[in-house]
């Protein structure tokens, strides 16, 4: 019988621990498909974050390390500087990358560190049970913003891609989403580009993936994907924010 669909080679057989309807599964798959297509499984070294994706080290078949909260780009820097021929990527959430790890994010981008960063923005801390993230939207209800995020009290959500694009350093910064088939396809293209850039020695490439958290948003998976479209994407527009080789930048 012809095989029409199968698991990417770069994913292990371990069942994901993610909640029903969580797009982490899709994003893991996209990363693994790209690793397969580029034939870099044997060269790849992944850095897992602290957060929902902490156990990514169980899911990818390449060598993996688990970094302290927010420090994945620094850990990746250490590895890449020692082993420039390996392909080093981080996989981080919004609390990890945009709150506690913002310094590591900005400075690895500024150095144009030749690594690939997959940044999953679902506007909430998932693993700890749904607290306000640096990317939670104004008015968004979370466990630690029970009356809705009051920007007068705790400030505005951070648009990471736009901010990093102001730096001279990074090679490539793009925002994608995984809330529908078309967006998933485009997300994969951006992720592939981010890995190709590293292989070609071009430097720091970050793909911000606008994602959903049905469990902590208190929505069905379908309603969560709709909320991505109606509320997240207007604040976090899809697009390529920096692409030095193509001479692009918004």
């Amino acid at each position: 019988m012809a095989v029409v669909f199968e698991k990417p080679k770069s994913l292990t057989d371990a069942p994901f621990h993610y909640c029903p309807g969580c797009p982490h599964g899709i994003i893991h798959r996209l990363v693994a498909e790209v690793i397969d297509e580029l034939g870099i499984e044997g060269k790849a070294i992944g850095v897992a974050p602290v957060g929902c994706a902490v156990m990514a080290y169980d899911y990818f078949t390449c060598d993996m390390i688990e970094a302290p909260h927010g420090r994945a780009p620094a850990v990746a820097t250490g590895i890449k500087r020692c082993r420039p021929d390996n392909v080093v990527f981080t996989y981080q959430g919004d609390g990890d990358l945009a709150s506690i790890g913002m310094a590591e994010t900005v400075h690895s981008a500024a150095r144009n560190e030749n690594i690939t960063v997959i940044f999953v923005n679902n506007a909430i801390y998932g693993m700890t049970g749904g607290q306000m993230a640096p990317t939670s939207l104004p008015g968004q209800v979370t466990q630690t913003s029970p009356y809705g995020r009051d920007v007068k009290h705790c400030g505005w959500p951070i648009r990471v891609s736009e901010m990093l694009a102001t730096l001279e350093g990074p090679e490539y910064v793009a925002r994608v989403a995984v809330n529908n088939v078309k967006n998933v396809k485009n997300a994969k293209k951006a992720i592939k580009r981010a890995f190709e850039n590293q292989i070609e020695g071009k430097g720091f490439s970050l793909v911000e993936v606008v994602s959903a958290c049905p469990t902590n948003w208190g929505m069905t998976p379908k309603a969560a994907l709709e909320w991505v479209e109606s509320d997240m994407l207007p604040y976090y527009p899809i697009g390529v924010y920096k692409d030095r080789s193509a001479g692009e930048g918004k």
Binding site: I65, A67, A74, V75, T77, G78, I79, K80, E104
Partner: peptide, 18 residues
Amino acid sequence: AESEIASINMVYGAAAAG
């Protein structure tokens, strides 16, 4: 590095890389 925190984590990565 940009901080002591980053530098020790670069050490962690490099040590893990052998």
